[in-house]
C-alpha cells in the first residue's frame, strides 16, 4: 500500500487541526474539502481550528475479533473533541483506544488523544493517535505509553 494517501491529511492527524464551516459551524475532521458535509454549502468557507486532545465518548464497542496485528480486546469509540478555545462545536472523531479496560468505558467518559506510530504503510511509519483514559485515571497500566515510537506492529 502506498504511503501517499496518508501524507495528504497528515497535519490533521499530527496536530489535531480541523476545519469549521463558517455557514453552519460544523467542524470537519480529518478531511478538509471544499464542501460542507452538513449544510451542503458548496463552496463552503472553512476556517482552521485547533482541537483539544481531551474529549467525551459518545458511544463505543469493545472488539474481540481482529487480525493478529491488533491487540484485543480492542475498544473503539466515537469521541467529540471540543475546540481548544472553548468556542464553537466539537468535532466528531472516531478511533481506537489503548490502555483501556473495556469494563471501565461508558458514554460520557473523558478520553485523551495519545500519539503513536499506528502502523506502517510500505516502509513509512504512519503516526496518529489512539484514545486513552486521562493518565491519572488509566486502568491497568502504570506505563508511560504516550509518544511511544519504537517496536513492531500495532500499539
Amino acid at each position: 500500500m502506498s504511503g501517499i494517501r496518508y501524507s495528504r491529511d497528515r497535519r490533521q492527524h499530527d496536530r489535531l487541526v480541523a476545519f469549521e464551516c463558517q455557514d453552519c459551524g460544523w467542524v470537519s475532521y480529518p478531511e478538509q474539502r471544499r464542501t460542507c458535509k452538513r449544510c451542503g454549502a458548496a463552496p463552503a468557507e472553512f476556517e482552521e481550528v485547533q482541537l483539544a486532545e481531551r474529549g467525551e465518548v459518545q458511544t463505543y464497542v469493545v472488539q474481540s475479533r481482529l487480525p493478529e496485528e491488533f491487540e484485543t480486546p480492542q475498544p473503539v469509540a466515537v469521541v467529540d473533541l471540543p475546540q481548544v478555545d472553548g468556542e464553537g462545536e466539537p468535532a466528531r472523531v472516531y478511533g481506537l483506544l489503548t490502555e483501556t479496560d473495556g469494563d471501565d468505558l461508558e458514554v460520557g467518559r473523558e478520553v485523551v488523544a495519545r500519539y503513536r506510530e499506528l502502523f506502517t504503510a510500505g516502509d513509512r511509519p504512519v503516526h496518529s493517535f489512539k484514545f486513552a483514559p486521562p493518565r491519572a485515571e488509566s486502568i491497568g497500566t502504570d506505563g508511560d505509553g504516550a509518544g511511544d515510537r519504537g517496536g513492531e506492529g500495532e500499539r
Binding site: 496518508y6 491529511d9 492527524h13 480529518p30 459518545q58 458511544t59 463505543y60 464497542v61 472488539q63 475479533r65 481482529l66 491488533f70 480492542q74 473503539v76 469509540a77 466515537v78 472523531v93 472516531y94 478511533g95 481506537l96 458514554v107 499506528l118 502502523f119 496518529s128 500495532e154
Partner: peptide
C-alpha cells in the same frame, strides 16, 4: 486512517451501546 481496525460489528455495535 481512522477506519483502520474498525470492523462491521463495531460500526453497528456502537449504535447498540448508545
Amino acid at each position: 486512517w481512522r477506519g483502520r481496525g474498525v470492523t462491521m460489528p463495531a460500526f453497528f455495535g456502537m449504535r447498540a451501546t448508545r
